[in-house]
């Protein structure tokens, strides 16, 4: 099992439904978010290029956040999902500093919180909340070890990139371009 997500930048319209779905599903407190939209406009007028990305924790294969955690609260579970055990977290902030994607934040209750790839849903075979609501089907969640899974097929057939690969984290969220 190697969970991953593919995000189609050509299909995304930047509606922000994934953000709201995540906040609702995971009881994310007001003013915080586990996923977010980035808009990037490049080029010189009039030939402009707009890229929309729905970003979240990359559930990296090489996890600086887990390595730096002094208590073992940050850990990797089955399928490569990076999680935080709330009552083992001391709130030192080391993992927040260690993440090149700034995907982690302090929950108002003191512990560090982040995207969990909705493991409470995906372990039952359901899609993550963000994937389930995406109106343009730009998000695909799946298992990279299964070569017939929709995500494996997408990554075989489309051009893709990952964010800041030079950080050496081997991210598992792929952006189709």
């Amino acid at each position: 099992m190697r969970y991953a997500m593919a995000m189609d930048t050509k299909k995304c319209v930047g509606c922000g439904d994934c953000v709201v779905a995540c906040q609702t599903e995971n009881n994310v407190p007001l003013g915080y978010a586990r996923d977010w939209i980035v808009e990037k406009v490049e080029g010189t007028y009039p030939s402009l290029n707009l890229e929309l990305r729905s970003e979240r924790c990359n559930h990296c294969e090489n996890t600086p956040c887990v390595r730096t955690c002094p208590t073992g609260a940050s850990h990797v579970i089955e399928g490569g999902i990076v999680k935080v055990t709330h009552d083992e977290c001391i709130g030192c902030g080391a993992c927040i500093q260690a993440c090149p994607y700034e995907a982690r934040y302090f929950h108002p209750d003191g512990y560090v919180d982040k995207c969990t790839f909705c493991d409470h849903r995906t372990s039952k075979g359901q899609d993550t909340a963000c994937v389930a609501v995406c109106p343009t089907h730009s998000l695909t969640f799946g298992d990279l070890d299964d070569e017939n899974s929709p995500i494996s097929k997408l990554l075989r057939n489309r051009k893709w990139k990952t964010l800041a690969p030079e950080a050496g984290t081997k991210p598992n969220v792929y952006f189709l371009i």
Partner: peptide, 26 residues
């Protein structure tokens, strides 16, 4: 004072993480 989850600080001393500089420091 820097910790956000202060009451759990003792968690530093129930484990040793060889890859974590902060654990070495503690």
């Amino acid at each position: 004072l820097d910790l956000k989850h202060q009451l759990y600080f003792w968690r530093l001393y129930t484990t040793f993480r060889i890859e974590s500089p902060m654990s070495w420091g503690a």
